[in-house]
């Protein structure tokens, strides 16, 4: 079996020939496209470590078959910063110590970026906690994660307001 797909990963078009229908997006990124920033924590959609954005929507890469992604636009943790300029969520995670070991962090950050873009949580910490609860953190950096998402939400809103002014 061989299947060719073309997808955009972090802004670059990638033409991929899949020799195996079983390849997940997570394993495609990590083992075939040299993008190991996205992490495998459970491989069955229970921990959120592999969260990436597909067409702006957050999904678990481990539950997504690569073969279904022809034409999709994928954003991973490697595609978030602009050169040395961190995305506000990345910067906020550092400022608020929103991680310890850093393993769930790419997923937490992608999830936070998605949550903020969805606009569903706003600056209500309770709703942020709910909205981030698909991402497990065994080090339990939840206190800092919530603070970081709150802060990034404010920073992004301020940036938007500045641009539209």
């Amino acid at each position: 079996m061989s299947l060719s797909i073309s997808l955009t990963v972090n802004g670059a078009v990638r033409d991929v020939t899949l020799n195996d229908a079983r390849v997940t997006l997570l394993d495609l990124l990590r083992e075939r496209l040299a993008l190991p920033g996205t992490k495998k924590g459970c491989d069955r959609g229970q921990c959120g470590a592999c969260t990436v954005l597909i067409d702006g929507r957050r999904i678990n890469a481990c539950l997504t078959l690569a073969a279904t992604l022809d034409g999709a636009e994928v954003t991973t943790i490697e595609g978030l910063a602009c050169g040395d300029m961190l995305h506000p969520v990345q910067a906020a995670f550092i400022d608020h110590d929103g991680f310890q070991c850093g393993y769930c962090t790419p997923g937490q950050i992608m999830s936070a970026v998605g949550l903020i873009a969805e606009g569903r949580a706003g600056t209500d910490p309770e709703r942020i906690r709910e909205g981030m609860s698909g991402n497990l953190c065994r080090c339990s950096a939840y206190h800092g994660i919530t603070e970081a998402v709150l802060d990034a939400t404010t920073r992004i809103a301020a940036e938007k307001a500045r641009k539209s002014a």
């Binding site: 990590r30 083992e31 040299a34 993008l35 190991p36 920033g37 996205t38 992490k39 495998k40 991973t76 943790i77 490697e78 978030l80 910063a81 961190l86 990345q90 910067a91 995670f93 550092i94 400022d95 110590d97 991680f99 850093g102 393993y103 962090t105 790419p106 950050i109």
Partner: peptide
């Protein structure tokens, strides 16, 4: 002080064992 490995960890550049290839 913020974590010195912070930038590596928030950008996906921190290399964990299984990231090696």
């Amino acid at each position: 002080t913020s974590r010195r490995d912070g930038v590596a960890k928030v950008t996906g550049a921190a290399t964990f064992a299984a990231d090696n290839h």
